[in-house]
């Protein structure tokens, strides 16, 4: 299984640790809020709105190098637009991985 990493952020910023920590701080700030909103939309059956949140969240996956998770989230987004929640559990697992990873740098 692919592991979260900071390769993309280092490459983007010429190994600027301050910038990398800035991005991780933003992820730590945004992700819990977006996840809570997403969960509420799923609970209330508002799948199109949930898909919009997946669209926002999935970008964070690829920022920390989770390409497969990004693809899965992309598929989840499309399925949600057809009211299909098949990939919900996998998505939550991946969000948790990103969240745990970024929190390690807090």
């Amino acid at each position: 299984m692919e592991e979260p990493n900071l390769e993309y952020l280092y490459q983007l910023s010429d190994n600027d640790m301050e910038f990398v920590h800035q991005i991780l701080a933003v992820i730590n700030e945004e992700l819990p809020i977006e996840l809570a909103q997403y969960q509420e939309m799923i609970t209330t059956g508002q799948y199109h709105e949930a898909a919009q949140l997946v669209h926002k969240i999935k970008h964070k996956f690829i920022i920390v190098g989770l390409k497969s998770s990004y693809k899965s989230a992309h598929a989840h987004e499309d399925l949600l637009r057809d009211n299909n929640v098949t990939l919900h559990d996998e998505f939550i697992e991946n969000v948790t991985r990103v969240s745990n990873f970024s929190l390690d740098y807090k």
């Binding site: 933003v26 700030e29 945004e30 926002k56 920022i63």
Partner: peptide, 9 residues
């Protein structure tokens, strides 16, 4: 951009 991480990058 509605996403802060994207704006920062």
């Amino acid at each position: 951009d509605d996403e802060l991480t994207a704006r920062v990058i």
